[in-house]
Design a protein around this nucleic acid. Structure first.
Lengths: 255, 255
DNA sequence: CGTTCTATTGACATCATTCAACGCCGGTGG
DNA sequence: CCACCGGCGTTGAATGATGTCAATAGAACG
């Protein structure tokens, strides 16, 4: 399985992601990255329990990460696209807790922990970038949590499609027509629902003229209506019931 | 509201948390912390949208953090106990995304961002500690996700009680008898279920002789049985169905 | 000592899962 | 080239776990 095209460089200064990539945020001290090889669908980059020895940046393709409970249940925690940072779950225990698995042919840049740490010590921008990425990952997870525990399945799916669309737009691709790199099973797992429900909802949305589904290809016909399902659909007038948890909002910041 | 006892020091070298606290992980360069004041129940430390200017360490008491969706739904993302790091959600955008709210009389140590960054630049241990904490927070969130999307309400509640018990044990308190500092509403929100369900489950567990509930006080009578409900209860023989997501487990780590 | 917050309990409604059958597509081997 | 097979996706019917609504009561708070 090492027969793949293997491409090892010391610096990725002409990577397409050059501006957003943690290796390049500090122009004065580019982090050397190694081991840029090609992975294929269903290959894994690392598995839960493996020694944490590097972070990775996804260069091309797409991937998913998942955790496993003691009972054997798996939960997909995220999908990744080019530019995303992989492996930050490893800092906690020194072992990866995620299993990272590619959804299609993909490539990554590897940043060894030693290199990373010296970059952190030397560059404010690298520190900023890493902390920001990790904070972002956390918030992302919490948004997912919010959607799973507070939204109907239809809203979750709509939200998911809009998120994907946004991600593609940000990467300069079409937010109107795109391909899902993950299976229905993956989506269902990620959103905490049954694949049958996904199927039914997709066809219903199609019947309503909101989207067009052809296998893995999705076309958004009416983004406004899609976005609208996120609000309480029964109630045309968007009622902002704050539903607030008891918390005095003094928010006496600092001192 | 500034009438509270106000206690400002430069260094917290004799804090009870001295060993685990990020301010003290590097004995050679203790981070100066400021503004140790007393907060009360329902006070908030910061709110979503406020400028991110500091991290905090919870010194005493307990707290919860929550995020709010555009529709006004709130989701509690975590409960905090002494030693926990607060505010790491702020790195992403430079504003807090959480609202942090105390559940009882509490105190914190404040670590300004400037101080933090110089400590990060100078100390490997501080870098390690911060990254570890953030990674841990991420994993924690994902465990919650897993439990919400893959477990029954009974299992979620059992899991929650066991987690709390563990936390108290780790802090040298009793894991058998403890007080919930949060309301049923908070628990329900956190676990993604209705308060009525919490109520019913608690009384059922009590009827089964697994726990004793008296308002906020919980006593674990039979921890083994509680732990056992986490597995598929129908099936006495624990069946480890791996339920694996399609992912070749080559896990060709590094290269 | 009333008002409000918190918690409990019952009856009922419902959304989503589960079970089951089937169709489609791509790959593989004869 | 065709037939078979397995993975993926769709659809229908029945079930059930959990939420919603409603009534009540105790504790906390001012």
């Amino acid at each position: 399985m090492n027969t793949q095209a293997l491409n090892t460089r010391n610096f990725c200064e002409n990577c397409a992601l050059v501006d957003s990539c943690i290796s390049n945020v500090d122009k004065k001290s580019v982090i050397g990255t190694q081991s840029r090889r090609i992975y294929h669908k269903a290959d894994s980059l690392f598995s839960a329990g493996h020694t944490f020895d590097a972070l990775y940046v996804l260069r091309s393709g797409s991937a998913k990460s998942s955790i496993t409970s003691r009972v054997g249940d798996e939960q997909i925690t995220n999908f990744y696209y080019p530019g995303d940072l992989l492996g930050i779950d490893g800092f906690d225990t020194g072992k990866y807790t995620h299993t990272l698995c590619f959804l299609e042919t993909s490539s990554v840049c590897r940043i060894g922990l030693g290199q990373l740490d010296s970059a952190l010590a030397n560059s404010y921008h690298v520190r900023q970038k890493l902390l920001r990425s990790m904070s972002h990952a956390l918030i992302n997870e919490e948004q997912l949590l919010l959607s799973i525990s507070k939204m109907t399945s239809e809203q979750r799916l709509a939200n998911f499609l809009l998120d994907l669309s946004n991600g593609f737009k940000l990467r300069g691709l079409s937010g109107k027509v795109f391909d899902l790199s993950m299976t229905r099973v993956d989506i269902a797992n990620y959103l905490g629902m049954a694949i049958e429900t996904i199927s039914r909802l997709l066809t219903r949305m199609q019947d309503q003229g909101i989207i067009v589904v052809q296998r893995r290809q999705i076309q958004l016909l009416n983004e406004t209506r899609l976005r609208f399902t996120l609000y309480d659909e029964d109630d045309p007038q968007i009622t902002f019931v704050p539903k607030s948890i008891n918390c005095t909002n003094l928010a006496t910041n600092s001192l």
